[in-house]
Design a protein around this nucleic acid. Structure first.
Lengths: 334, 334
DNA sequence: TAGTGAAATGAAAGCGCTTTCATTCTTGGT
DNA sequence: ACCAAGAATGAAAGCGCTTTCATTTCACTA
């Protein structure tokens, strides 16, 4: 691999000049620029980015942490982030946090140890205090789907409360009054907020919140199955089920169908997130759109703006969910 | 951030000694090791990995390229790769190739420009010749789901032909004779091989391959829909549909159901890949298991073994698919 | 044609580490 | 108590680049 030194020798100029032409950040006369570029071509020169990083104290890479790499939700998020960063020539380094404190801590350390210029993370287990402490370090950290006291400008999030509200409203307005709810793990802010919104809608329509029809699931298929099983065992009747995400809704549907409940006639189900697969499920799942791809893009833009001075970028910190009506809610008004 | 120099001063030893204790690759007496470790702790020293990379000519990072980050298939693959590499302390840099030549080329260049120690890629568009050329470079490149002439030892792949064979056999053995097939894009080796296996099974059972019941899809939901639509328009009757992946199977199911075809009674469908969602689909999809997570792990191991001398690792280059029986195939042997 | 300020270029000091090679310390055998 | 051989340590030269600051060149003006 040719080095900058060889280029400078061949072009008959100094290292500094070669560096100037590769970085386009200082004036170089047209004639010398030409000489240098020619030398680069004949030597097939590629700057060594590691050396550049060391000298300039900038790695042009951004670390990403998500809970898991499989799973449709994070896939969309990463896709949004990657698309934007790649277009800006920034490398993306990934790590997983597995929704637990220890892995999240280690994952962040791991990214930091690689001298990322910034981090974009989806943290589920670590608490605000730890994150606030973390942000006192030199590497800027941006948070997906989270609001942290005092760090709002580093956060990109969905209005989950409103989403929960929308979901509840969607079933209520189809005439449902006996509604079950399967939540995500309440230590996750997303889950907590969705539940709050759900409760707000109930209150607004004067429907009591029935703890018999509440279950805290795991945001996975299993949670949907378990919750449905539990509800079915109890005698409390219910005609609708609000699930805090689509995967649990899918699990609930599968379980219900296995127990001869006809969908959506006997049980209306609504999900949350609008993951790709929600429209393949039968009946096609009515759900709340979580624009996670766009949020990923936005987080990337936030980083680009703050870290690399892409000043023209407009940042939006909060996204609104919306209802996606499909076939899984049955209208029971008279 | 403390540097190695400060540590060496505080510990009263030379830079070289500090380096030795961080790298554990040369003898250091217990007493000096202790001194150095203490100094590291009091200074909260973390080696600068960029400087390490420059000096040692090793970045401890591996570049990954997949076609897309969303999508269940690649999610599993990345998860397998990441898990293994992370455990070995290697960073994972990701890029997408979008199944087209240009993006794939640029993606690889992008990874190479970051001085990755190795690449693990899932290439769909670039041809063997280009890849052979690429492998003459200094960075080892490993290929997922692909066999390249002369580079077999760099490839980890699934026996797709056998998978296609299995899929066909699964429907044939339930009594189906009129079978439709929706393929993936034939420029993708996976798609081509699956089709070959399918044809082999037909021949084995003396069932003619009917081009009226063949469609080349896009490996996405759309392809499944379009293929089904096409078949339904023609008069050729068929009782079973083999899809070259699960997403197309899901699309086919959705379309069929929209047109009042009762599943699986009127139409048996089998998919391929066994993506997470295949069991949520209704009827639960019978499919061919593609152990892509394990293959991802294996690709990572291959890299670890060859690049970082993890010599104990056992490498398996070819994986066998297997049938996952669920509910989407109807037995019509009276 | 000399003088001026701005533009272009070069010299050299790092960036924080690894690694080779030379030097100094330890041992243990006698 | 002495020496050789091996173990532990240190000095210093890079790794390939950026960037500051000094110097040279240039285009004008007077």
């Amino acid at each position: 691999m040719a080095t900058i030194y060889e280029v400078s020798k061949l072009a008959g100029v100094s290292l500094a000049t070669v560096s100037r032409v590769t970085n386009k950040n200082a004036k170089v006369s047209d004639t010398t620029r030409k000489k240098v570029e020619d030398a680069m071509v004949t030597l097939n020169y590629r700057p060594n980015s590691i050396a550049q990083s060391l000298a300039s104290n900038r790695t042009n890479s951004i670390g990403i942490m998500v809970s898991a790499l499989n799973g449709p939700f994070f896939g969309q998020m990463m896709a949004g982030i990657e698309q934007e960063l790649r277009a800006a020539g920034k490398h993306v380094i990934i790590t997983t946090g597995h929704s637990n404190e220890n892995d999240e801590k280690e994952g962040i350390d791991f990214l930091l140890s690689r001298n990322c210029d910034a981090l974009i993370v989806h943290i589920e287990a670590l608490d605000d205090q730890y994150l606030q402490e973390l942000c006192k370090g030199n590497t800027p950290i941006y948070f997906m789907s989270r609001t942290i006291e005092g760090l709002q400008s580093n956060c990109i999030n969905l209005d989950n409360e409103y989403g929960g509200y929308l979901a509840a409203k969607a079933v209520i307005e189809q005439g449902h009054k006996n509604i079950a709810y399967i939540s995500g793990p309440l230590f996750k802010p997303d889950a907590k907020e969705r539940l709050q919104g759900y409760k707000r809608a109930l209150k607004e329509y004067n429907i009591p919140f029935n703890t018999d029809l509440y279950f805290e699931g795991d945001f996975k298929e299993t949670g949907g199955r378990e919750g449905t099983q539990l509800f079915l065992k109890k005698e409390t009747p219910f005609s609708a089920l609000v699930c805090a995400n689509d995967e649990m809704a899918a699990g609930a549907m599968t379980y219900a169908r296995e127990h001869n409940i006809s969908l959506p006639k006997d049980l209306s189900i609504i999900g949350f997130d609008n993951i790709i697969f929600s429209r393949y499920i039968y009946p096609k799942l009515t759900t709340i759109c979580n624009p996670v791809f766009e949020m990923g893009q936005m987080a990337a833009k936030l980083a680009l703006k703050n870290v690399y001075q892409h000043n023209k970028l407009k940042i939006k910190h909060s996204f609104k969910p919306s209802l996606v009506t499909r076939d899984s809610i049955h209208n029971i008004i008279d």
